[in-house]
Amino acid sequence: MLRFHFTSDDLARVRIAPGADPMWETLLSAHLVNELREVRTFGVWRSRVVADLPRLALPYLHLTPPRGYSPDFLTPADGTTDFADGLDGVLFTHRDRLRTDIDRLCEQKDVSTWASDLRDGLVKAVDGLGATMSAYHAHAIEPYWARIRAAVDADLMVRARVVAMSGVEGVLSSLHSTVTWDAPVLTIDNPTVDRDVHLTGRGLRLVPSYFCWRKPMTFADPELEPVLLFPIEHCVSLVGAPGADQRAPLASLLGRTRAAALQALVQPATTSGLARRLGASLASASEHATVLRRAGLIRSTRCGNQTSHELTALGHGLLSGSPA
């Protein structure tokens, strides 16, 4: 069991990441690439990634075994929504942290000469880390990033509603089926771990993750900023072939952009979120949403100064080609 012990100050300092963290998604996706058994939800994505994986990406996979420990420094503790910023954080890791984390990795597996050089903070090895992480991210994450981000954004909208209705303790109670909130302790059912994390006023940062697939997880080092990664719900076909145009049958009926808007709302979004997904202006996204709503394909809900949009049964049916 993994147990987080809260004080009243910690409850006041619970916060949720503003979006998908590319460093965590990169790391956790690498666990899946290294995984020998099939994981159905990610099967299409994994087969495409593995089929033509660049050689330059392989050293990164050496640092990210599917079981056990992966170096904490690969996911900077302060979090980010931008890969370039996150990579800078990794490459500027203090040498003591590199040594500690690589030594811990060595306890469970043999490491390459390159990883040993990385442990010592050698400039060539650190530069190589930047190159291999960039190569892996460009191949396995970047082509799918819009869909990954959209799925995480949809989860964040759900969490925001829970906060509005039930407060922070409502969020803690509904994170995942393996999580139990019995104040003041948050318990994650994990038979491979027996650990207590005392937050001592530091709070807890919650990070919804697309590629976190077994159960919630955190840093191995309890001295780092307290973070809890938790899996979001998935649409199995969400991450498919990059560039695949699934909207073609709808384009002649609705128009290309409006068909794209309907497809984008497979995961609910605010008007501004829809604009980001379409690469359109806020006014344009609002206009498309209005037309889709009048056609009965989406429903819109006002919450404060934002409007959230989601597909109706008719909208889902039109996308799937099935009757509502």
Rank of each mutant, 00 (worst) to 15 (best):
Glu107Trp: 06
Ala115Cys: 07
Ala131Lys: 05
Gly304Arg: 09
His176Arg: 12
His176Glu: 08
Arg161Gly: 09
Arg294Ala: 04
Ile148Gly: 05
Ser134Phe: 04
Arg258Lys: 10
Leu274Ala: 12
Leu250His: 02
Trp114His: 11
Asp85Ser: 07
Phe73Asn: 02
Phe4Asp: 03
Ala131Ile: 08
His139Tyr: 10
Gln267Ser: 15
Pro71Leu: 04
Gly273Met: 12
Ile232Asp: 08
Leu253Lys: 08
Ser308Lys: 00
Val197Cys: 02
Phe4Asn: 00
Gln306Ala: 11
Gly128Tyr: 07
Leu2Arg: 02
Leu253Thr: 13
Phe211Met: 02
Arg13Cys: 15
Ala140Leu: 00
Val239His: 08
Gly43Leu: 15
Gly170Asp: 12
Val171Lys: 07
Leu250Thr: 01
Leu172Glu: 13
Leu118Phe: 01
His234Asn: 09
Ala150Glu: 06
Tyr144Pro: 00
Pro216Met: 07
Leu87Glu: 01
Val185Arg: 08
Thr200Phe: 15
Leu228Phe: 05
Arg3Glu: 05
Ala115His: 06
Val266Cys: 02
Val14Glu: 12
Ala17Ile: 15
Pro222Asp: 01
Phe73Glu: 02
Gly317Val: 07
Ser29Ile: 07
Leu311Lys: 00
Asp221Met: 07
Pro208Asn: 09
Gly68Tyr: 13
Val227Arg: 13
Met133Ala: 00
Gly243Glu: 01
Glu25Ala: 06
Cys212Arg: 14
Ala251Met: 01
Pro226Phe: 05
Val14Phe: 12
Pro66Tyr: 13
Ser209Lys: 10
Arg104Asn: 05
His94Lys: 11
Arg104Pro: 05
Phe211Gln: 07
Leu53Pro: 10
Pro71Arg: 02
Gly170Lys: 09
Leu28Ser: 12
Ala125Glu: 01
Ser29Phe: 09
Ser272Phe: 14
Glu233Ala: 11
Ser47Arg: 15
Val227Glu: 10
His288Ser: 05
Thr132Gly: 06
His288Cys: 04
Thr301Tyr: 09
Ala269Asp: 06
Val33Cys: 03
Pro231Arg: 07
Asp103Val: 07
Ala131Glu: 13
Trp213Gly: 00
Asp196Ser: 14
Arg299Thr: 11
Thr93Pro: 04
Asp194Pro: 00
Asp85Ala: 15
Asp101Trp: 03
Arg277Val: 09
Gly279Ala: 15
Ala269Lys: 12
Ala154Leu: 06
Val266Glu: 06
Ala12Cys: 00
Val44Phe: 08
Glu233Lys: 06
Ala84His: 12
Leu314Glu: 09
Thr257Lys: 04
Arg299Leu: 00
Ser112Arg: 03
Leu199Cys: 08
Leu61Phe: 14
Arg202Leu: 09
Ile141Arg: 03
Ala77Asp: 14
Pro191Ala: 14
Gly19Met: 13
Thr81Tyr: 06
Ser284Tyr: 13
Ala275Gln: 04
Leu122His: 10
Gln108Pro: 01
Leu265Trp: 09
Leu11Cys: 06
Ile141His: 01
Val197Met: 02
Ala131Cys: 08
Thr41Arg: 08
Pro249Met: 10
Ala77Leu: 14
Ser177Ile: 15
Thr271His: 07
Ser112Phe: 14
Met217Ala: 05
Tyr210Gln: 03
Trp24Thr: 13
Leu254Arg: 10
Glu233Val: 14
Glu169Ser: 09
Glu223Ala: 05
Gly128Lys: 03
Arg13Leu: 11
His316Cys: 01
Asn34Met: 10
Ser209Cys: 12
Thr81Lys: 00
Ile16Thr: 13
His137Cys: 04
Thr218Asn: 10
Ala160Gly: 12
His176Trp: 13
Val239Tyr: 01
Glu107Lys: 06
